[in-house]
Design a protein around this nucleic acid. Structure first.
Length: 574
RNA sequence: CGGGGUGUGGCUCAGCCCGGUUAGAGCGCCUGGUUCGGGACCAGGAGGCCGGAGGUUCGAAUCCUCUCACCCCGACCA
């Protein structure tokens, strides 16, 4: 491809709307342009990268027996109502105003509707179906350029099996394919458990790329053996030791003490582990006429309540509003505790770390008063012990073998054992060997195409631009003719370009005559193709060509006559 | 949805508080010339309903009201 004929609008300055490196560099290198919030136009260079990623995905999906489909983005409201997701998705789904249609954010329903009349015998199973297609999600707040967009490309795959054993196999196949895809894409990634725990839960793993711009917090171990989404991560941590002193419970005044830190300061202590932190949550009633339930969550003063863990335990919670506290607990925030709680039906959930602990200090459910010497065994009936704390940096992994590090990551893929939820809702059943009717067992597997590119750039850039590598670089070679106005230099460069093309190399050839060398070098570094080859008057005099490796900046001169043959060696591992 | 911020040539921004010639700069673009290995130089030039609507005023990019868009933080995110 000749630069002079290709549309690559590079930018010297940082666009004011972009903040994270991948977004800035995608715009500056002429890969994308924003049309409106969360919606981007893909320019030729960007499209080329995205297509490369798609092809890797396609190859790996086909390698595990995937059937490629292409389903409509438009689908009838009715179909979504059948599985209850029209309501579940709420505002996050785009609705068509003048027709009863939605723009699909994912395709479980549509795929299942095809499976239903066609996968009707065990002989038809298993099946792996996928597509690479544009998805629409009405994200409340798009951010980070291609990291969270309202319109994006997704590979979504679905497996249909006769039973959970079959699903295990399909799920493992996908996991393997995903590892291949991200490895080939040049990403440094790790897999985290996203096991939800709710309702027995389904197995689920997220493929994560560590990056400052990531939206997810993950706990990973230093030895790489452990990785978990912070929302569900567990660690090994010592329990607060029971002292068995049997000291009498005692109320004492704590004027204006609202937080654990203030309480510790008030008491003149630094160890906050025996200061039981109380947080009140509401479990909204799901059945008409039934009352909401209340949950008092208690953790050590130096811990935080994991709202996700609590959410999973009760299948939905929300923090109580400040104005509700007095009504429910009998005190405002800062003075709430497990003893003397106003509403006697409250469910008290205590983190394992405080199991059977005593000599605790907590709010007295009376403003500006606390209790000391609270003993869970003695003073608090019906305590339910659960893991409800958020793990912290530096703690040990559950097997005690390594330390936990908390970091930010981008989710580039997600594999999920769906089970029969959608098949059940849509009545997708098959007959087994015994003529018995069973519901299909499904898995769902997603990959964000543009997110891979964005995540890659987050991990592979420097002050000058992108550093492409792996298989997703838009081109392998960036050929620069420094002085095209000198006829023999231009002719040599043209000839060399043709030779490279004939040998099947992917080349971007900067043949621009009206650009100074500096501009060409800057553009080359910005665009970031892994190998730059420079033809100039200077080099030509010695019948040489100069190579520059984008990642290391290393340069070397090679004889023009034999470079073609050794080129594959240079391109290896770039 | 809550909080904060920004809308001024293609891009990045100044001017706005304190209203007053013809609205500026750098980059980019066009023409001519000189350059030609790290975003060159000189000269000339084109390009703006100052996001939109209404208002105050003799006079509004500037003050007021409403509105739209975009960005950031948070909430949300099977």
């Amino acid at each position: 491809m000749k630069f002079s004929e290709y549309f690559i609008p590079t930018l010297k300055e940082v666009p004011s709307d972009a903040v994270i490196p991948s977004h800035i560099l995608m715009i500056r290198s002429g890969m994308i342009r924003q049309l409106t919030a969360g919606v981007y136009s893909y320019l030729p260079l960007g499209l080329r990268v995205f297509k490369k990623i798609e092809n890797i995905v396609r190859e790996e999906m086909n390698a595990i027996g995937g059937n490629e489909f292409y389903l409509p983005a438009l689908s009838p409201n009715e179909l979504w109502a059948e599985t209850g997701r029209l309501e579940d998705y709420g505002d996050d789904i785009f609705r068509i105003k003048n027709r009863e249609l939605v723009l699909a954010p994912t395709h479980e329903e549509v795929f299942t509707s095809i499976a239903k009349p066609n996968l009707i015998s065990y002989k038809n199973l298993p099946q792996v179906w996928y597509q690479i297609q544009t998805k629409f999600r009405n994200e409340p707040r798009p951010r980070g350029g291609m990291l969270r967009a309202r319109q994006f490309t997704m590979k979504d795959a679905y497996s249909f099996d006769a039973d959970w054993e079959g699903l295990d196999t399909s799920y493992k196949d996908q996991g393997k394919a995903y590892r291949n895809i991200f490895t080939r894409s040049g990403l440094k990634f790790f897999v985290v458990s996203a096991f939800s725990g709710a309702m027995g839960g389904s197995e689920s793993e997220e493929f994560m790329v560590e990056a400052e711009a990531g939206e997810d917090s993950v706990a990973i171990s230093e030895d790489g053996s452990f990785a978990s989404n912070i929302e569900v991560a567990k660690s090994y941590i010592d329990k607060v030791q029971r002292k068995n002193s049997n000291l009498p419970i005692e109320e004492f005044p704590t004027p204006n003490v609202k937080t654990i830190d203030e309480l510790a300061e008030f008491l003149g202590i630094t160890d906050k582990s025996r200061l039981a932190k109380s947080r009140l949550f509401v479990v909204p009633s799901k059945t008409e006429g039934k009352k909401d339930e209340y949950v008092l969550a208690l953790v050590c003063g130096d811990d935080e309540v994991s709202e996700t863990k609590l959410f999973n335990l009760f299948n939905g919670i929300r923090p109580a509003h400040p104005e509700e506290l007095m009504e429910i607990a009998g005190a405002d925030a800062g003075s709430i505790g497990p003893v003397n709680f106003k509403n006697k039906d409250v469910i008290i959930v205590v983190d394992y770390r405080l199991q059977d602990a005593d000599e605790l200090i907590s709010g007295a459910c009376k403003n500006d008063f606390h209790f000391k010497n609270i003993d869970f065994k003695r003073d608090v009936p019906r305590v339910r012990y659960e893991d409800i704390r958020t793990v912290k940096e530096g703690e040990l992994t559950p097997d005690k073998k390594s330390k936990i590090r908390i970091t930010k990551a981008i989710e580039v893929g997600h594999i999920f054992k769906l089970g029969s939820r959608y098949a059940e809702a849509l009545g997708a059943k098959y007959l087994d060997e015994n003529g018995k009717e069973n519901v299909l067992v499904m898995g769902s597997y997603g990959i964000g195409i543009e997110r891979i590119a964005a995540a890659y750039i987050e991990q592979n850039h420097d002050k000058d631009g992108i550093i492409w590598g792996g298989e997703i670089s838009p081109f392998k070679i960036h050929l620069i003719c420094v002085n095209p106005k000198i006829e023999n230099v231009k002719n040599s460069a043209d000839d060399f370009y043709k030779e490279l093309i004939n040998k099947g190399f992917e080349v971007l050839y900067d043949d621009r005559e009206d650009m100074s060398p500096g501009v060409k070098f800057k553009d080359a570094d910005l665009i970031g193709i892994p190998l730059q080859m420079v033809i100039s008057e200077k080099n030509l005099k010695n019948s040489e060509i100069e190579l520059k490796f984008r990642r290391t900046g290393e340069r070397t001169r090679v004889g023009l006559s034999d470079i073609i043959n050794s080129l594959p060696n240079y391109l290896e591992n770039l």
